[in-house]
Design a protein around this nucleic acid. Structure first.
Lengths: 141, 141
DNA sequence: CTTGACCTTGACATCATGGGAAGGTCGAAC
DNA sequence: GTTCGACCTTCCCATGATGTCAAGGTCAAG
């Protein structure tokens, strides 16, 4: 039998694992500290963290969820569902839907600000003179 | 001569002044600590901060600027221009324009997230079964 | 004189991330 | 066999805007 079936799994140190997942080593330690990632196994003498393919996979999951704006608390929930074979897709969809709702809310707030700003800017000459409707509005009595 | 011309200016304590400007007392102290508001005069014995109408006016300016999403640093600049009679409206408009640009950038990021989420949610059954394209996407290899 | 409302400062929490210090470990080059 | 650079460890501090809480001082009304 060739050795292919007995190859040890890749074991990466934190820098390599983080890079493979698109994270910083700093963040990987932080995620472990707050319980988002399980405590990594360590090398005997140097106490370095070691990661296998599954760990990197989980890190990538976290990074993708972050890039969609999910909070750590939400990611913790999503990770639990991801690992739970008895989950219902409804539970996942509920979290995603709530988050999308939050995002739309924030977008609406920001859009309100932009609209007000643009309205004020349209009335501001933007030249060397001091008269300025933007300041007038901010300083209204 | 009636006393009307010699009325002392209103002097409010921090809670009253903050309420009049729509801020919390806490925030007024904080704005003073970071140099956004000038150090308030104090009562002799009790060391309470005292504010006049101009101070409240400035606080209101800060609150309105915050409600448009300006950062403290930007508000510091805007306050300087507000008080500077030799300002150019162009300087104000530049700050506002930059801020509007930042806001549009953030809106675009959030909209990207919402679009991705909505796309994924459209393909998720949201029922009792575990299959879920949302988790599939987050956990893609 | 007590009570309650207000004020003072200061420390700590949020949220996700980064920076840096001080020191240990490893591999490779000399 | 030492030295050097790259990496790792933990721990502390910073961000931005706001809030909470605690311990204590002040004041006006009852």
């Amino acid at each position: 039998m060739p050795s292919t079936s007995a190859l040890p799994p890749q074991r990466l140190k934190i820098g390599q694992a983080a890079a493979a997942a698109g994270l910083s080593a700093k963040m990987v330690r932080h995620y472990e500290a707050i319980g988002l990632l399980p405590r990594a196994t360590r090398t005997t003498y140097s106490n370095y963290r070691l990661y296998g393919p599954n760990d990197v996979h989980t890190m990538r999951f976290v990074r993708r969820a972050r890039s969609l704006g999910f909070s750590m608390a939400e990611i913790k929930e999503l990770l639990g569902l991801w690992r739970n074979r008895a989950r219902s897709s409804a539970a996942v969809k509920r979290i995603a839907g709530k988050h999308a709702e939050d995002l739309r809310q924030r977008i609406a707030e920001l859009e309100g600000m932009v609209e007000t700003l643009e309205h004020l800017m349209r009335h501001c000459h933007g030249d060397h003179r001091p008269e300025c409707p933007i300041l007038d509005e901010l300083g209204r009595a």
